[in-house]
Design a protein around this nucleic acid. Structure first.
Lengths: 195, 195
DNA sequence: GTTTGTATACCTACTAGAAGGTAGGTAAAG
DNA sequence: CTTTACCTACCTTCTAGTAGGTATACAAAC
């Protein structure tokens, strides 16, 4: 049983890496089998179809993100510090190449060609992230630690867009540092202090 | 000859639509053949390999973008209006679904899995767009029509990231309006007037 | 405490179809 | 009579997915 969980986790981790590199159609069961060290048919034992595999992967990713965010909120109460920590988390993932792109952002880019079951999960991730950021923006404005012109919703959407776009630029330039170069001033601009 | 050009243009247009929907591995020669109304082998007559086809497509896209931008600069001299027009162009493409995503942005997202010949062209597009936006930012600051804290380069990178991220959000939400909702205030924020 | 049943985790071997690509032919235009 | 634009027919490799087998573990039944 513990062996099962290990292998299925290895399959999910391998699939995540492949998707982050090349999207839904950028990998095959044979690729994963080669990396994990099992046979193609064994992957079908854990995940009957490719759709099952990727749907599970995205659902788990969203659930883990939800837990991480709740965790972060309790540890880092200040909304500005929260945004800094969030941006810093991605900066680290990109810089050490452990997760050079958000798996959901990549899948979202090919959303029209995605199996519907996967598309649903991807949209759910975006909705969660957007609502979480909106909450943070709202709280920051209330506490007077964040300052912006539009609504909290709009500011959250703009922030999320900048994060995803900065990931893309880091990849296009082959320069991880550009992510932090964009995000640090973007977070700073939201600060109510100095200016 | 004119018949040839027409067909090869149809092939490129079809390939562009497929890539915009699902990326490099999201379509096949059979898909294009079906859409254009010719046989698979005929595509190989115009483009010997898939790499040739996509490399040509991206190269043409960059060249046309370069011409369009030069054109735009002569018609719209004001840097702020230039940014507004650029954002408005994409807003229109997304809203009428004629080009709901930038083909180079999509390919950039799967850059690590792309054939090197294609990757080179995609990076060239990003470098061009970045340098063009930097030029616009620089000129805008000189003329006193644009105002920002960091360097023109950084502001250009941030703007480009926001554009690409806003495209992604529009796609993820299935809501074209979110692009304009993000971009209009983003451009406005760069204006030296009012605030 | 063997035996028997059942589930898990993997395997080899296979299938049908789709992938990119080739060989070689035809019809028309210059 | 050569080039262009297209075709049919084919090839090889890869694709997701299936069928059916084996080894192991952990039970309950005798």
């Amino acid at each position: 049983m513990s062996n099962l969980v290990m292998t299925s986790d290895q399959i999910l981790a391998s699939a995540r890496n492949f998707i982050v590199a090349g999207g839904y159609n950028g990998f095959s069961y044979a690729d994963i089998a080669g990396e994990v060290g099992i046979r193609k048919a064994s992957i079908h034992h854990h995940f009957p179809s490719k759709v099952d595999l990727v749907r599970t992967l995205v659902a788990h990713h969203r659930e883990r993100t939800e837990v991480s965010m709740a965790d972060l909120e309790s540890k880092v109460p200040d909304p500005l510090a929260l945004l800094r920590t969030y941006a810093g988390y991605w900066a680290k993932c990109i810089e050490d190449a452990s997760m050079p792109f958000c798996v959901c952002a990549l899948l979202a880019s090919e959303l029209p060609a995605l199996p519907p079951e996967v598309a649903v999960e991807v949209r759910a991730y975006f909705r969660f992230l957007s609502s979480w950021l909106t909450k943070v923006m709202h709280r920051g404005a209330e506490q007077g630690v964040l300052k912006f012109v539009g609504s909290a919703e709009l500011e959250a959407e703009t922030f999320m867009a900048t994060v995803h776009g900065a990931m893309l630029s880091a990849r296009a330039y082959g320069n991880p540092a550009i992510f932090d170069a964009i995000l640090t001033p973007t977070v700073q601009r939201l600060s109510a202090k100095v200016h």
